[in-house]
Design a protein around this nucleic acid. Structure first.
Length: 549
DNA sequence: ATGGTAGATAGC
DNA sequence: GAATGCTATCTACCAT
């Protein structure tokens, strides 16, 4: 689906609709009247009802668009700015699209085609290519910034009409139609970009990102079922508590919860009782997903705000499968750094936190106390990416409630690096990347080839450690998502959310255990292909809500 | 009125 | 020699 919105004076072919229910009714009407019509739904915000919500978010119109698509109608809810350029969309929506689509925005176009039941064997997406070639560019950055980068890789100026619209969500205004763009501009452009992708060893990650798009679209469309009334009760309770609260820290926390979640039941729960976020697979330097509207990747965990995750539920007859990787960043780092000691911990199936605790306490792993293990956990996560002893004190206090003096923090640091000398060597190696020279850009990359460029003088040691590890983990996870998309569908299930190393699926009750095993196995196998020298462990369980362990 | 940034805090 | 990182969203503040 495209996007949304509001226009003061819509063209005559646009129906003005007042609310979501009316849009669904329109879908029925259109199905009877004109099965091939282009239905353009325009959702108007109610300024009275949503005073703080001038955002005009596209998701508000999505249920209507989905209803239209479900009725087999070519539906588009398009951005106000694009209304004038509706003509280019007509051939696509009327079914003229070629089976091999080269497009600026595969996310949108494939969504439209998929909902019309069209198979698309392959998509070459110039936007995916452009983002990867930009070496760390924001996937949502302005077209005017991306276009010169693409031109640079081409070694020539972009074709005139594509300079503005090439990599944007909006289709190129200068292109007379999708089909024409396919023939005249985008296909040759993709052909020209392909050698650059190969040269920079980006071909594999390009393939991955293109293959991932259908799974992401399906996840966005699925959404997650919410007990909106239970969530509202929680919010009401926070508001009530806020009135008499006196502890400043408690007040701050309540204010944060209320301001962030307070309007979710009203603003984000669709007619079918589900919340749908938007997922951006190419928006971050590391390759992780960005998530917004709302950001379901930062729903408070049980220890922060008990009960919130319990409102995210499996509907009747279905179950959730919640899966995540165990210590994935440590495992990826063990592989990338080639640290024998750290690798061996995982090969032996030992507890990595006990291993560090044992060094610190100078006792065998079996004899470390709970407190020592807790400290070691902070140590392992903190020092892996180059944290200093001073910062570690704050971190251990804030995240683990552990108070240390500077000497203890330094001993902790020493214990970490003497337990895992390969990690120390890796840190030295990365530290040397930006050595004396200082006049050259530095590029780091993930195992599948995603690149992150530090411009001369802007090298960050910590980022250079973190991005390849975080990014490689993200890539293994994305591979799993690609595999799981058809495999779960075969069971009557579907992925509904991903949170960096956590995958949530909704499956039929009677196949829950089967799905659980499938998800766990698929996640382990996919990541295992990326970091073959280290065993990968994923944990998965069946639950009725997101809060259940 | 809109738009951009800083700092705090939620997630991993 | 020293250095966690990647995000989104909220409030407060300052600019146009």
């Amino acid at each position: 689906m495209l996007t949304t919105a509001v226009s003061a004076a819509p063209p005559p072919h646009v129906r003005r609709i007042q609310d979501r229910r009316a849009l669904v009714e329109l879908a029925d009407e259109l199905e009877r009247a004109a099965p091939k019509a282009l239905a353009l739904a325009l959702l108007l915000e109610d300024a009275e009802e949503h005073p703080r919500d001038a955002r005009r978010d596209p998701r508000r119109a999505r249920p209507a668009a989905l209803a239209l698509a479900a009725a087999g109608l070519p539906a588009a809810v398009i951005d106000g700015d694009a209304l004038a350029d509706l003509a280019p969309l007509q051939p696509l929506l009327a079914g003229d699209a070629p089976p091999y689509v080269v497009t600026d925005d595969a996310h949108t176009v494939m969504g439209v085609l998929a909902r019309r039941g069209l198979e698309i064997p392959r998509v070459g997406c110039t936007r995916v290519a452009a983002t990867l070639l930009a070496e760390g560019a924001d996937g949502r950055r302005d077209d005017r910034e991306l276009a010169p980068l693409v031109a640079e890789h081409l070694g020539r100026e972009l074709p005139g009409g594509l300079r503005q619209g090439l990599v944007g969500r909006a289709l190129a205004p200068a292109a007379p139609s999708i089909a024409a763009a396919h023939a005249d501009a985008l296909l040759p452009l993709m052909k020209a970009l392909t050698p650059r992708l190969r040269e920079l060893r980006l071909a594999r990650i390009f393939e991955l990102e293109c293959s991932l798009i259908p799974a992401v679209l399906a996840m966005e469309d699925a959404g997650i079922a919410v007990d909106a009334r239970a969530l509202q009760r929680l919010i009401d309770a926070w508001r009530e508590e806020r009135r008499s609260a006196s502890d400043p820290a408690r007040i701050a926390r309540l204010d944060k919860l209320i301001s962030t979640l307070g309007y979710w039941p009203r603003d984000w729960v669709d007619l079918d009782g589900r919340i749908r976020c938007r997922l951006f697979p190419l928006a971050t330097d590391s390759g992780r997903f960005a998530c917004q509207s709302p950001n379901l990747q930062q729903v408070p965990a049980e220890h922060t705000a008990p009960g919130v995750r319990g409102c995210f539920i499996a509907p009747p007859g279905r179950r959730l499968v919640i899966a995540d990787y165990a210590q994935i960043e440590l495992r990826v780092a063990a592989h990338i750094a080639g640290c024998r000691a750290l690798r061996q911990v995982f090969v032996d199936g030992r507890d990595v936190h006990r291993a560090t605790a044992a060094t610190l306490a100078r006792r065998p792993e079996a004899e470390v106390s709970d407190h020592e293990r807790k400290l070691a956990k902070a140590i392992n996560f903190g020092f892996l990416f180059g944290m200093g002893a001073r910062r570690f004190r704050e971190y251990a206090s804030a995240s683990y409630g552990l108070e240390l003096d500077l000497g203890a923090a330094e001993r902790a640091r020493d214990a970490f690096f003497s337990t895992f000398p390969g990690i120390a060597a890796w840190h030295r190696k990365v530290g040397n990347l930006a050595g004396r020279g200082k006049t050259e850009d530095v590029v780091v990359h993930t195992l599948l080839g995603r690149r992150k460029r530090f411009l001369a003088g802007h090298f960050s040691f910590n980022s250079a450690l973190n991005i390849p590890v975080q990014g490689t983990a993200a890539e293994g996870f994305k591979l799993a998502m690609i595999d799981l998309h058809p495999a779960l569908a075969a069971l009557g299930g579907r992925g509904i959310l991903c949170v960096h190393d956590e995958y949530i699926a909704e499956v039929p009750e009677d196949r829950a255990e089967e799905a659980r095993a499938l998800i766990q196995g698929t996640m382990e196998a996919a990541m295992g292909r990326v970091i073959p020298s280290v065993p990968v462990v994923a944990e998965a369980h069946v639950a009725g809500s997101w809060a259940e362990k």
